[in-house]
Amino acid sequence: MGGFKDYNKRFEDFTCCIGTGMENHASYNNSIYFHHGDKLYVNQYIPSVLCWKEKEIELKQETLYPEDDRIVIGLSCKQATSFTLTIR
């Protein structure tokens, strides 16, 4: 910090190193859901659909969060299956 980087020209170039955080918005969908073993983790509240192929489960998340605090999570599966749903 305190130094000048030649590749950090505010209006001529765009890199992730200028401290704007702009690159973060393109990564939100990478971490909405995780699964490990028989656990499914809902990590973020973003309208989305997850197809967990190994368990044949589809999870649909509907929300206007953060404008509205209501979040609807719907589950559908081809046959009965057990798993743990973990909500952050």
Score class of each variant (00 low, 15 high):
residue 62 E to C: 04
residue 19 G to D: 06
residue 63 T to Q: 06
residue 65 Y to E: 07
residue 12 E to F: 09
residue 71 I to K: 04
residue 11 F to H: 10
residue 22 M to P: 00
residue 16 C to P: 01
residue 36 H to G: 07
residue 56 E to A: 11
residue 27 S to R: 12
residue 87 I to V: 09
residue 76 S to M: 09
residue 53 K to G: 12
residue 59 L to T: 07
residue 69 D to N: 11
residue 52 W to I: 11
residue 21 G to W: 06
residue 46 I to V: 15
residue 75 L to Q: 14
residue 5 K to N: 14
residue 75 L to N: 12
residue 7 Y to S: 01
residue 34 F to T: 06
residue 10 R to M: 06
residue 28 Y to D: 09
residue 10 R to N: 03
residue 75 L to G: 11
residue 85 L to N: 07
residue 70 R to K: 14
residue 72 V to S: 11
residue 61 Q to Y: 02
residue 15 T to N: 09
residue 40 L to P: 08
residue 82 S to Y: 13
residue 35 H to T: 10
residue 80 A to Q: 05
residue 88 R to T: 12
residue 73 I to L: 14
residue 55 K to V: 05
residue 57 I to W: 07
residue 35 H to M: 03
residue 77 C to D: 09
residue 66 P to M: 03
residue 53 K to E: 15
residue 35 H to F: 07
residue 71 I to A: 03
residue 46 I to L: 14
residue 56 E to D: 15
residue 83 F to K: 05
residue 42 V to K: 07
residue 43 N to F: 01
residue 28 Y to Q: 05
residue 77 C to V: 09
residue 15 T to I: 02
residue 31 S to F: 12
residue 52 W to R: 08
residue 28 Y to R: 05
residue 63 T to S: 12
residue 85 L to D: 04
residue 61 Q to C: 05
residue 66 P to S: 01
residue 4 F to M: 15
residue 40 L to C: 07
residue 85 L to H: 02
residue 74 G to K: 14
residue 18 I to C: 06
residue 54 E to R: 10
residue 50 L to P: 00
residue 2 G to V: 07
residue 87 I to A: 01
residue 41 Y to R: 01
residue 69 D to F: 04
residue 61 Q to R: 05
residue 7 Y to K: 02
residue 82 S to L: 13
residue 57 I to E: 02
residue 63 T to W: 11
residue 70 R to F: 15
residue 5 K to P: 05
residue 11 F to A: 02
residue 51 C to I: 14
residue 56 E to T: 12
residue 66 P to I: 03
residue 44 Q to L: 13
residue 67 E to M: 08
residue 26 A to S: 15
residue 2 G to A: 13
residue 33 Y to Q: 03
residue 84 T to Y: 10
residue 59 L to R: 05
residue 27 S to C: 11
residue 2 G to L: 00
residue 54 E to H: 10
residue 70 R to G: 05
residue 63 T to M: 06
residue 8 N to V: 10
residue 28 Y to C: 02
residue 6 D to R: 13
residue 84 T to Q: 14
residue 6 D to W: 06
residue 33 Y to L: 05
residue 53 K to V: 13
residue 19 G to M: 04
residue 3 G to E: 08
residue 60 K to I: 07
residue 31 S to E: 10
residue 65 Y to N: 05
residue 68 D to P: 00
residue 48 S to Y: 00
residue 12 E to H: 03
residue 61 Q to P: 00
residue 39 K to A: 13
residue 54 E to P: 09
residue 63 T to K: 12
residue 62 E to K: 06
residue 87 I to G: 00
residue 79 Q to T: 11
residue 74 G to N: 14
residue 34 F to Y: 11
residue 72 V to W: 08
residue 81 T to R: 13
residue 27 S to D: 12
residue 49 V to Y: 00
residue 1 M to A: 13
residue 62 E to N: 08
residue 24 N to D: 15
residue 48 S to R: 01
residue 59 L to Y: 02
residue 74 G to H: 12
residue 13 D to H: 07
residue 50 L to A: 12
residue 51 C to D: 15
residue 34 F to I: 00
residue 68 D to S: 08
residue 34 F to P: 00
residue 59 L to N: 06
residue 74 G to Y: 11
